[in-house]
């Protein structure tokens, strides 16, 4: 690039040969290489900073708190997932004396997909599956986001954030005690 635009020595020679020191015909072109370099450096900088710093967001629609319509779901199509501390995840199916299983954040996707297949086989519609997400107060926010993420990844359309109640707490303590 430097050679492209370096006519200075040759033009000065020209000026000498014409014997006109005053109006020596020097080229009006300036060496732009450094400026262009700087320009591209700045472009790179602005391009990288511009695109990298856009935060994404996850839209969450919660049900109305004191609305009179209570959504009822069929137990057969539901699964309850409890987010506990230390990234532990418990899940169970049904209400009456359910079997509580323990897994972790990485293993929950398989569980959801398996349950989805069960529902698919029984009803013919995989998106009837309803996931109830219950987070203990000591669970980390990260777990919640990951859980909501799993909903997006497994394409689960119906899910709800439900309060962690005493029944759940009883089930989990039983599970821990049984081990």
């Amino acid at each position: 690039m430097a050679e492209m635009n370096n006519p200075a020595p040759s033009s000065s020679k020209q000026g000498h040969s014409k014997q006109k020191p005053r109006s020596s015909k020097r080229s009006t072109r300036v060496d732009l290489t450094a400026m262009v370099d700087l320009g591209f450096l700045l472009i790179t900088f602005f391009m990288l900073t511009a695109s990298l710093n856009k935060p994404q967001s996850m839209e969450l629609n919660m049900p109305e708190k004191d609305s009179e319509t209570v959504n009822t779901i069929s137990v057969d199509n539901a699964i309850s997932i409890v987010l506990a501390q230390n990234n532990e995840v418990y899940y169970y199916i049904g209400i009456d004396n359910p079997q509580v299983e323990k897994t972790n954040m990485a293993g929950i996707r398989e569980v959801i997909l398996k349950r989805q297949q069960d529902v698919q086989q029984r009803t013919g519609k995989a998106d009837l599956l309803t996931v109830l997400i219950k987070a203990q107060s000591k669970a980390k926010y990260q777990n919640l986001v990951e859980m909501l993420d799993e909903m997006a990844i497994t394409n689960t359309k119906r899910y709800a954030l439900v309060d962690y109640n005493t029944t759940d707490s009883l089930l989990i303590t039983q599970k821990i005690a049984a081990k």
Binding site: Q56, S57, L60, P63
Partner: peptide, 11 residues
Amino acid sequence: NINKFNLITST
């Protein structure tokens, strides 16, 4: 009565 909000996350 704000039932719709965004959770900011990274990609």
